[in-house]
Amino acid sequence: MFPFMKIVKVKRKSMIINYTIAIILGLGGGLAVGAGFVAFLTVLGVIPRLTQLTKTKNYIRFYEWGVIVGAVTGSWISLREPIFRLPSILVVFIGLFAGVFVGLLAAALTEVLNVFPILAKRVGVAEKITYLLMAIVFGKIFGSLFHWIYFVDR
């Protein structure tokens, strides 16, 4: 036996340990982030709201899987950065759906924080609350467009 064989063996052993640690770390981190993401979605109640609007309560299992598959695909894409070379019209739909999702989250967050009932009571505009809602909606759209078209160049 040559002495360097032993060194290689030790190195391989330590590599296996390192990989195992890396796998456990990755799995643990992913578990925490995934659980947190689902908890966040649950607290905000976006999925129940969507099923209520579309009257598709029976398909809620599939929606769960949609979220899971979406999260896994997203994390894979963001880590591997593959290039697909698809027609660029596709990004219009992706952008629209991404926007709707973020809008749902933003609306749910406003709602969870109980901003509107208090504001409407204080200012005394309970019956004009729809217009205040529209102020926020237009503010979001305008702010977002302003950001992308003008602000990012500054």
Binding site: I89, L96, G99, V100, F101, V102, G103, A107, I136, S144
Partner: peptide, 17 residues
């Protein structure tokens, strides 16, 4: 091309909610 639909969707999502 991605960002303008995104911005409109943002408002749409809030209205939907």
């Amino acid at each position: 091309l991605l960002q303008i639909p995104y911005s409109i969707g943002l408002g749409l999502g809030m209205i939907l909610f």
